[in-house]
Simulated scan of single mutants.
Amino acid sequence: MSTEARLEILTRINRATRARGDVPARPVAPPPSAPRPHAEVIEQFAEYAAEYRAHVTRVDEAGLPGALRGLLAGERVALPQGLPPAWLAGLDATPDRGQGHAELGACGAVLTTCAVAIAETGTVVLDHGPGQGRRALTLLPDHHVCVVYASQVVDSVPQAVAALRGAVQAGQPLTWISGPSATSDIELSRVEGVHGPRRLDVVLVLEPGHLADPA
Rank of each mutant, 00 (worst) to 15 (best):
E4P: 09
H143Y: 11
G171T: 04
I42T: 06
E51S: 13
Q99A: 07
A115I: 04
D201W: 02
L71P: 13
D155Y: 09
G90S: 04
L188H: 08
V59I: 08
N14P: 01
L111I: 09
T94A: 00
T112E: 07
A16C: 00
H210L: 01
R135Q: 11
A102V: 09
V205F: 09
H38W: 07
Q132N: 11
Q99S: 08
T123D: 00
P84T: 06
A54G: 15
H38D: 05
H128Y: 14
G70H: 02
S184W: 02
T57Y: 14
G21M: 03
R135D: 11
E207W: 10
R6F: 11
L206H: 03
A49R: 08
A46S: 03
S178K: 12
D96L: 04
S156K: 11
P35L: 12
H128T: 06
Y48S: 00
D213K: 02
V191W: 01
T112M: 11
L188Y: 06
V59K: 03
T11A: 14
V157M: 11
L88D: 05
I177Q: 04
Q159E: 11
A54I: 10
A5N: 08
D142A: 09
V23L: 15
P158E: 04
S156T: 15
L164G: 01
T183N: 13
H143T: 10
G100I: 02
P32T: 04
H210K: 00
A62T: 14
G122F: 01
P208L: 00
A117P: 15
A167V: 01
E51W: 12
L140K: 07
P214Q: 05
V148L: 13
A89T: 12
P130D: 12
Q169F: 14
V77E: 03
V125Q: 04
T57R: 15
G196A: 11
R36F: 14
C146P: 08
V41M: 03
T17S: 05
L188V: 02
A78W: 07
I9S: 10
S189P: 06
L91Q: 00
G129V: 01
D127Y: 09
G196S: 12
A89V: 14
D201C: 08
E192I: 12
D142Y: 00
P208A: 01
R76K: 09
P31A: 08
L71H: 08
S178M: 13
R134V: 02
D213R: 08
P32R: 03
R26N: 12
P141I: 08
H38F: 05
R69K: 15
Q99I: 00
A115W: 07
R69S: 15
Q152E: 08
I177D: 05
H128K: 06
R135L: 12
T183D: 13
D127F: 03
S181I: 09
T94H: 03
Y149G: 10
H144V: 05
G122D: 04
A212I: 00
R69H: 14
L7P: 07
V157K: 06
